[in-house]
Nucleic acid binder design. Structure first.
Length: 560
RNA sequence: CGGGACGUAGCUCAGCCUGGUCAGAGCGCCGCCUUUGGGAGGCGGAGGCCGCGAGUUCGAAUCUCGCCGUCCCGACCA
């Protein structure tokens, strides 16, 4: 039993000034976490209890699929990171020891674990699943939202080692199933989606996204439930444009001073979707490339970069004038000598485009007749798009990435020389997967999803305590005796009990109980002396009922 | 890295524009009293390098410059 009078739970009456996200505000107000620096947070005792409850769930499920827990250091020799060409990643924290030897603070542990995997010399040693809970350091350019994006955090990272792709597939699916169980048990709403592999490399990855009021990802789902993806790779079917009558040849139209699609469509009295938007960029070779998307769409620069095979930057006004001979608001594909990459939406139909003459546009521009282009998916899906599978409406939700699993293949085993001898005597690189969960992200997702005006209603499985008992001392010693016996009873039933034994007024205790957010609050006041009942409040939904003291423990345990 | 905002007591903020009884409030904290089912009230008290450093001035929380820090948007991102 924990006595609130003896715990370090510094609750705050007001929202912290620098917090925006609900989870950020409430986690600070509730005395769960405190900031140390940008993206650097301490978990206070209450917050750490929640964190460790998540950790316990993760550990159980990892062990259940044969994972072996181990522990690898944060400080890592730079050579390992140089070997895999990840030393140059800007987010890597770098440091030197006293003799100037370069080191990194690991942001993940592929390099280290793969170096150990060199001892897996035979196919007989495979498969293996190794994991640990360890601090990751990431020098993020912009930490934000409390625990949402931080520069140091604990991660459960596991690594699978298999003989071949089939083995990897099995390890990958085992993790996928384990992750589903973990997030279900943690009591958060989530969705598994196909995702980008980003800097991890590898062939396939699945993201676990928890919809929330704040987050870094956007979850795109079909209202009919047959499609879910991260916005980064999502595809939507845009509405059909209202095209004006077809023209036999492009027709110039004066558009002085018009530089935006909105103004263009407005002045011509046409649908924005019947215009094209020209986005000149400069590719890795320094050439100006024209990216074209429909007027009502946004260009996804990552998709464009993938198509072009190099990073791109926006062209400067000078570059635009010299390449197109016109100001940025009036450029288009017709007559442009460089490469044109156009979104699929522009393949059919006629659109308005810049005339490459300042203050002038062309109506009726048509691919094939008036210009040539390479077509690709370049647009950012948006509200109003239809599901690519069934045509249903797509939903867009802000979400927190709570887990991510990757098929790595031999991305790390090759450069680090983790090879084994197969049954046929041939040496092969170990086939790997890596799988991460940020318990702190699970905490913030649960906080976002359980937040209300008063605090956070935690899921029972990760709540800091199962039940908080609030004795109202003014009710007198007899009532307090009943409260004490009730607490003993609850404890004997195996429940984690928090008692607010502070010498405070009831209102303050209630407010803090809401903030602390135990799933159940039991108030023992003078009314218990009249009818032997206490008030049992279910934090989520705030339903309160009067229950016989003798029934409380049964009530608490039967649902668990 | 680009744009914006902010930095004064433990927390939330006022004061700055217009330099001079300007070191302030509320909450929190300590003591006493009173009160006790939704953050009560009274009296007394402790608590500040006004982010740091230069400069201007007789005089700087206030004006100028530089630096540092934090947050938000964007870029970026296992």
């Amino acid at each position: 039993m924990a006595r609130l009078s003896q715990l370090f739970v510094p609750t705050l009456r007001e929202d912290p000034a620098d917090a925006e996200a609900a989870s950020h505000k409430l986690l600070v107000r509730g005395g769960y976490i405190r900031q140390v620096g940008a993206g650097l947070w301490s978990f206070l005792p209450l917050g750490w209890r929640i964190h460790e409850k998540v950790v316990a769930i993760v550990r159980e499920e990892m062990n259940a699929i044969g994972g072996q827990e181990m522990f690898m250091p944060v400080v890592t020799p730079a050579e390992l990171w140089q070997a895999t060409s990840r030393y140059g990643i800007p987010e890597v924290f770098k440091l030197e020891d006293r003799v100037g030897r370069p080191l990194v603070l690991a942001m993940t542990h592929e390099e280290t674990v793969t170096s150990h995997a060199r001892e897996l010399g035979s196919y007989r040693d495979l498969p293996q699943i190794l994991y640990h809970f360890q601090t990751k350091g990431r020098d993020e350019p912009r930490p934000r939202g409390g625990l949402l994006r931080v520069r140091e955090f604990v991660m459960k990272d596991s690594y699978s080692f298999d003989r071949d792709e089939e083995g990897l597939e099995e390890s990958f699916r085992a993790h996928e199933r384990a992750y589903h169980r973990i997030f279900e048990r943690s009591g958060i709403e989530f969705q598994a989606v196909q995702a980008e592999s980003g800097m991890m490399g590898g062939s396939e990855s699945v993201d676990f996204l928890a919809p929330a009021g704040a987050g870094e990802n956007t979850l795109v789902t079909c209202e009919r439930g047959d499609y879910a993806a991260d916005l980064e790779i999502a595809r939507g079917v845009p509405r059909a444009p209202e095209l004006p009558p077809r023209l036999d040849a492009p027709e110039p139209v004066d558009t002085p001073g018009i530089a935006t699609i909105e103004a263009l469509a407005g002045s011509l009295g046409i649908d924005e979707a019947a215009t094209s938007k020209a986005m000149p960029v400069v590719n890795g070779d320094g050439e100006v490339v024209l990216a074209l998307v429909r007027g009502d769409d946004r260009l996804d620069e990552a998709k464009l970069a993938a198509v072009l095979g190099s990073a791109v930057r926006q062209a400067t006004d000078e570059e635009i004038r010299s390449a197109f001979g016109a100001d940025p608001g009036s450029i288009g594909p017709v007559g442009f000598s460089g490469e044109v990459v156009a979104d699929e939406t522009l393949r059919e139909g006629q659109f308005v485009a810049g005339a490459n003459e300042t203050g002038r546009h062309l109506r009726g521009v048509e691919h094939g007749r008036d210009f040539e282009a390479r077509f690709a998916d370049l647009r950012v899906p948006k509200e109003g798009d239809a599901c690519p599978r069934c045509g249903g409406a797509l939903r867009f939700q802000t979400a927190i990435e709570v887990g991510h699993i990757f098929k790595l293949g031999t991305r790390y085993s090759e450069p680090l020389g983790a090879r084994f001898l197969d049954a046929d005597g041939v040496e092969r690189p170990v086939v790997m997967g890596s799988y991460g969960i940020g318990p702190g992200r699970v905490v913030s997702a649960a906080a976002e999803q359980g937040a209300d005006e008063q605090g956070v209603a935690w899921p029972r499985s990760i709540a800091p305590y199962d039940v908080e008992v609030v004795p109202i001392e003014a009710a007198g010693p007899d009532a307090m005796g009943i409260a004490e016996r009730l607490v003993d009873d609850l404890e004997r039933a195996g429940l984690d009990v928090l008692v607010d034994d502070r010498d405070r007024r009831p209102g303050e205790k209630f407010a803090d109980a809401d903030l602390i957010g135990c799933p159940v609050r039991i108030t023992v006041g003078k009314k218990v002396l009249e009818d032997g009942r206490v008030d049992v409040l279910t934090r989520a939904g705030r339903s309160e009922e009067r229950v016989q003291v003798s029934d409380v423990t049964n009530r608490m345990t039967e649902g668990a």
